[in-house]
Simulated assay, not measured.
Amino acid sequence: MVRAACHCGAVRIILEPAPAWVLDCNCSICRRYGVLWAYRSDPIGKTELSVELVQGEDAVEAYIWGDRWIGFWRCKACGCVTHHTALDQPSTIRAVNARMFVNFDPASVILHRSDNAHTGAFWTRPDAPIRQGGQPPMDPPGPDDWR
């Protein structure tokens, strides 16, 4: 099971099993959101993920654009983009933003890139060693911690 939550914790999602891959899409909106998508229906790994919004149904709002086919859902309080749905099935989560995953090792999934901008340009790439962050360390998360 994988837990996902927005920054403030108002929106919480559970996925099962853990995804085998995530998608980096460079279209105009995904690039701006900085999302990596874990899809419910997995044509690459041939699995179906169980995805459940366990908290925050009333804490999200959708941004709808273009052909009005997809709604990008974000927390009304902290603004995090948590998931997207097809508008003909708004209660069925199509994909979860993997950057919302809690206590998840990104090295455990394959990163696929989809060139929907038709530029060949992506921000995700291993160009340099990982740098130590400047934020003070936090206490280890407990079993009910969704940060």
Rank of each mutant, 00 (worst) to 15 (best):
G142R: 13
I93W: 03
N103H: 09
I29A: 09
V54Q: 00
V2R: 01
S108F: 05
I64G: 00
R40M: 11
F72N: 06
V51Q: 03
Q55D: 07
C80N: 11
P90V: 14
P137A: 02
Y33I: 15
D139V: 10
R3M: 05
M138F: 02
I14V: 07
N103M: 06
V54R: 14
Q132F: 15
W21E: 05
M100K: 13
T124C: 09
S50R: 10
S50I: 08
C80G: 13
C78P: 14
M1R: 13
A62E: 06
W146G: 15
V102D: 07
G134S: 08
V102M: 00
G66E: 13
A117K: 10
C6D: 04
P90S: 09
D115S: 11
R99L: 01
A5W: 00
W69L: 11
D24H: 08
A86F: 06
H83K: 09
A128L: 02
Y63C: 10
S114R: 11
S50V: 12
C75G: 12
P137F: 11
S108Y: 08
C30A: 08
C8R: 00
A86W: 04
P43D: 12
P43W: 14
L15D: 07
I70M: 12
D115I: 05
F104I: 10
R94V: 12
S28K: 13
A128E: 09
A18L: 03
L36I: 04
F122S: 00
V51Y: 05
V102Q: 11
D88S: 03
S91E: 14
A121R: 15
R113I: 06
D105W: 02
E61Y: 12
Q89M: 07
R68L: 14
A4V: 10
A10E: 03
S114C: 07
R131A: 14
R99N: 01
D105S: 11
R31Y: 08
H112C: 11
Q135L: 13
P141V: 06
L49P: 00
G9M: 01
N97D: 09
H112S: 13
R31I: 04
E52H: 12
H7F: 13
W65A: 01
P136S: 06
E16M: 02
R12F: 15
E48G: 14
S91C: 06
R32K: 07
A10I: 10
Y33K: 09
D67I: 08
H118R: 04
W73Q: 08
V96C: 06
R32M: 07
R99M: 05
Q89E: 08
G133F: 15
G66T: 06
C80D: 04
A59T: 00
C27I: 08
G56M: 06
Q132P: 13
S28Q: 15
L111M: 12
D144T: 04
W65S: 08
L36P: 03
W73K: 09
C80K: 03
T92R: 02
R12S: 07
C27R: 11
P137L: 13
T85C: 07
A77Y: 01
W65R: 09
H118Y: 08
V54S: 02
E52P: 12
R113K: 05
S91Q: 13
A107E: 08
T124F: 11
Q89I: 10
A10M: 06
M138C: 04
G120Q: 13
C6A: 02
P137T: 02
G56P: 07
V35G: 05
